[in-house]
Design a protein around this nucleic acid. Structure first.
Lengths: 226, 226
DNA sequence: ACGTAGCGGAGTGATCCGCTCCGGTCGACG
DNA sequence: CGTCGACCGGAGCGGATCACTCCGCTACGT
């Protein structure tokens, strides 16, 4: 497997993408492969998937994986961090497009779901929260707040929903998106259900949502308690 | 723990609920307790939760549990069976009430979600399907088909959804309902999201759902392939 | 008062998983 | 072209966990 990579990027001429060459190029490539594989594996099989599965999917030995990440927890933390950064980016871009607020909002949700934001939410409370994660989360929270308010004011988002509602919605679909590594037919159904929920987010003439608006505190505490 | 049970049902006067008395009454009670505990534990922690957790939650020894169910798989199969029977019952009652088809449909979905129908769907493909399961599933499928058609004809259910869509919706919320054994605040959020999706099921003037209607075959094959 | 049905839970063997460590490989450099 | 060492893959280790068994005990029924 690495043979391919070696043949592709090391033995031949310098690659346009990588800065370094030879062995170091392979190392850099492996970095990406590990990250991608980890996202897939953990999103599909849950955070208790064996690390060896990640290594195998990345086409990389255990040694190479553990040289980059000191432990499984560290790897997962890094994954969470990346997820949240993606969400931040998506939110920023949604806020930047002022043309159709509702469409921008929908696009934001879709991007979060597809980036599997929240696919790792089941690990909440089982790994420590790094400072980087905390910082990025805080930023994403602010942006989401802003986005929700704007969409409620100008985009037709029903006023009785919360940032927590939206977060949970994204997590719900982000978690099950591609869950259990099923075929793509599964993903299509999930997208249909997501479309259903999004349609429901627009309706305001129906019944109001049951219960009180969920509290931000409860939402966040999942990550800290036990 | 069993001391309580003994004091309650065995040492005292005959209980009105149970047919038998004394030791046999405790046995019968334990039966129920095991079932209930198993449903909770597996729904919350996933099907790979240890059997000992079920026993502990039921307040019952491992011996008592294994006398009733020869193996963990057998227990899970029984649980699936019960879930589906509940769904069948809910569907029958929904079809029986002819007054407000939409309300009956909503009630049906809620009952299924609350009964955690589909909480065990992640085990699909990991345990053999008993004939009883197969039979009950087939019956539930027929009833759901009928219910969906009626609600589409008379209840305002949008026409571009499928029985599979509905099943997956129920599974989605049934699985995450109470997932990870969180507090009840979590359940309230889930109910809000469910209400959102149900609202979306009613809208017909918005965009149509993306993709083709999901195929029943794909849906069912999850239980048989690998 | 005794036999025994039914109980709880410690123990067991096997599996699995995170992580380490080492022999091999191949680019880098003189 | 020879040597060196950075980096690689993956076998193996130690410990944790889990499904399941087995046995001593309790207390009901007679």
């Amino acid at each position: 497997m690495t043979d391919d990579a070696t043949a592709d990027c090391c033995a031949g001429a310098p690659r346009e993408g990588g800065r370094r060459r030879g062995r170091q190029a392979e190392a850099e490539l492996n970095d990406q492969r590990v990250l991608e594989a980890a996202r897939d594996v953990f999103a599909c099989e849950g955070a208790d998937a064996p690390v060896s599965a990640v290594a195998k999917r990345a086409g990389v030995g255990m040694g190479s994986l553990y040289r980059r990440y000191g432990s499984k927890v560290e790897l997962i933390q890094h994954l969470c961090q990346l997820s949240m950064e993606q969400a931040v980016l998506a939110a920023e871009e949604a806020l930047a497009s002022t043309e159709d607020p509702w469409a921008a909002f929908v696009e934001f949700v879709h991007r979060c779901v597809r980036a599997r934001y929240g696919a790792l939410s089941p690990v909440a409370g089982t790994i420590p929260v790094s400072e980087a994660m905390d910082r990025t989360y805080r930023r994403s929270r602010e942006l989401l707040q802003e986005l929700v308010q704007r969409t409620q004011a100008e985009g037709g988002l029903r006023p009785d929903v919360n940032t927590v509602d939206i977060s949970r919605l994204i997590e719900l679909f982000g978690r099950s998106f591609g869950s259990r590594c099923r075929n793509t037919a599964d993903e299509q159904v999930q997208l249909r259900l997501l479309a259903l929920a999004l349609a429901g987010l627009r309706v305001t003439d129906g019944d109001p949502l049951p219960g009180p608006k969920p509290s931000l505190e409860d939402y966040e505490n999942r990550w800290y308690l036990s």
